[in-house]
Design a protein around this nucleic acid. Structure first.
Lengths: 338, 338
DNA sequence: GAATATCGACGAAACGATTCGACTGATTGT
DNA sequence: ACAATCAGTCGAATCGTTTCGTCGATATTC
């Protein structure tokens, strides 16, 4: 059941059927209705592949997610969901690809088979080979996170430096004088993961500004690492009365370690950070944290990409998200020194 | 940079380039190398859309996930990741589509634009309009979960009835005589969600077999619903000493409510169920539960689908997963009656 | 009333690959 | 030595759309 068959049964030419459907040229009302009747009867829908070939675009965007190895997290999940929703609104399909490993077959397939009109790249590294690839292919793309030299590119990012800085400010205002940062894993830092680097910088700046003690700890993205990380902090720096965390996956372990050390939150210990709302609310007491705006980010990424596909040489759009810090119950005045 | 350009520069015809690449006909070694040199120089990759049009297949499978509304959960996330991985191994791309709402535009686009060679349908209902649609279009598909009449279809599912039954057996063996089931939400049950129905049946059968008291409670898929659900159970049925749960998202709330009621686990209260390993390990003490085998399920679904695409009229493959129940620390002997 | 728009429809040429049949030399078999 | 095979290549058709140019027929304009 292709357009030729419809044309034959309606007694018109293929082009007339096409114009009747697209409305790009006038078609008399009677033939239009005759054609529509045949279409309804046979349940014809134009073949998307043929259309894509002819039009030179696929009405599809590629979404490159981190490989399953590195465990997609809940925040990213929410992001993916919101990208789908936004793409759907723009009548675009979403082709998934995981990448970040050594041998990114699906990335190659999608990108150099020209299966997509544009790409959203998650979990970008400061120096990212995929970005170079997309630039070389002149395929429109938007990155979630920035490379080291983000000028001239299209990206959205979360301003970890500012957010971590604000957390430090908040804790310092409450009288805390020794604060630890629970950052992401050493591997992630080593591989040039922007948020981890910028959290580090924002933290260092803020503690320096306040003239207070600050120490950074890297921590793998899971609960048990969070537990040992806190134990380590408490052992090596008993003077610490508050932590800032950007490692949401470690939170359950952080909680356990603090409970085991009988450090009541927020009476004897404070904690603030950046996390998806799910994790912040899961914490007990609920975590004072900047909630990652996954839904906004997904919608914005799609908007930027659509715009760039329409106008590949337009000005590159960029947006830094600085979500407000939701005051919950995990921070309080520093305990009196004993 | 299309195949014609390559042919021109290599001084051969387009068909020769094609045969050199596919190996479907003999090409002399010297011309093959000449062609390869041109290809390497220009970085040519065949256009996937044109190939798809000609070959009549897209090397793409559709993955239909529940809409963002109904919140994709971690187990589903793991499933999606494993589908991607398996598809990648089979050199297939994955086109995402969310569906389940009233107005499934992306499902329509993917399915009747013939953008995919087959579909994996998650979160199937006992009577599902999408299944009828796919059958009518004669598009190969595999469902995750069964419809009410699953004969002749391709599906995989988790045997909730058996698993819940085994949990009841386990608890009964430990001496528990009054057990509650924490099922999924009433809406989900009402909409004909198979796992919820089968959990109910398995539970009813098992408590009857043991001649013990069993009562079922529906509970929305979130922590606070879990909390009120347990409070309700304890209030209305103080004789209950154990629960079986198939509602992983409610677990954190269940935990809170039991803690608040000062019911130590497993000394004074036991709990077992079906859950993704993440949730089971998140529970304290860790939950005795059948771990949902998301990774196996994803790989199996892709296998079945690939097979069915290759042979649309072959025998429909089906598989019921009955993952073993991992004994952890949340179940113990029933407390002596007081 | 002749020149000129305008409308509605048609045919053919793309888009970029794959594949079938045919053709040319060279090799083999008898 | 003549037919049969075979390796290597080419041209043309095809997949299902969209769109450009064209062309009657009717309507508009001076």
């Amino acid at each position: 059941m292709n357009i030729g068959e419809i044309a034959r049964r309606a007694g018109v030419s293929r082009s007339t059927v096409s114009y009747a459907l697209s409305g790009k040229r006038a078609v008399s009302e009677v033939t239009r209705q005759r054609i529509q009747a045949v279409i309804d009867e046979l349940g014809y829908r134009p073949n998307a592949t043929a259309r894509a070939l002819r039009e030179g675009r696929n009405r599809t965007l590629g979404l490159v997610v981190p490989p399953a190895r590195g465990r997609l997290n809940l925040m990213q999940l929410e992001f993916v969901a919101s990208v789908m929703e936004a793409a759907d609104r723009a009548d675009l399909d979403v082709l998934l690809s995981s990448s970040g490993g050594d041998h990114d077959r699906s990335f190659e397939r999608i990108v150099d088979g020209r299966r997509v009109d544009g790409v959203i790249l998650m979990e970008i590294r400061l120096d990212d080979p995929r970005v170079r690839r997309l630039k070389a292919l002149r395929l429109p793309f938007v990155t979630i996170g920035r490379t080291a030299r983000p000028q001239g590119m299209c990206w959205i990012d979360v301003d970890y430096a500012t957010l971590v800085g604000r957390c430090v400010n908040h804790l310092a205002d409450l009288g805390h004088r020794h604060i630890a940062l629970i950052n992401r894993s050493t591997e992630l830092v080593a591989s040039g993961y922007g948020p981890a680097h910028r959290a580090r910088e924002g933290f260092a700046d803020a503690v320096a500004r306040h003239g207070i003690g600050g120490m950074e700890f890297c921590c793998a993205d899971d609960a048990s690492a969070g537990e040992t990380c806190v134990q380590e902090i408490l052992r090596a720096h008993p003077e610490v009365t508050a932590v800032v965390t950007v490692n949401e996956a470690a939170l359950p372990g952080v909680q356990r370690a603090l409970e085991d050390a009988e450090l009541n939150i927020p009476a004897r210990f404070s904690i603030a950070g950046v996390a998806a709302r799910f994790w912040a609310e899961q914490f007990r007491p609920q975590l004072t944290a900047a909630d990652l705006p996954a839904v906004d980010m997904g919608a914005t990424a799609v908007d930027f990409l659509v715009e760039r596909i329409a106008e590949p040489d337009g000005p590159p759009r960029q947006h830094l998200f600085v979500p407000p810090i939701s005051l919950r119950n995990s921070t309080g005045p520093a305990p009196a020194a004993h």
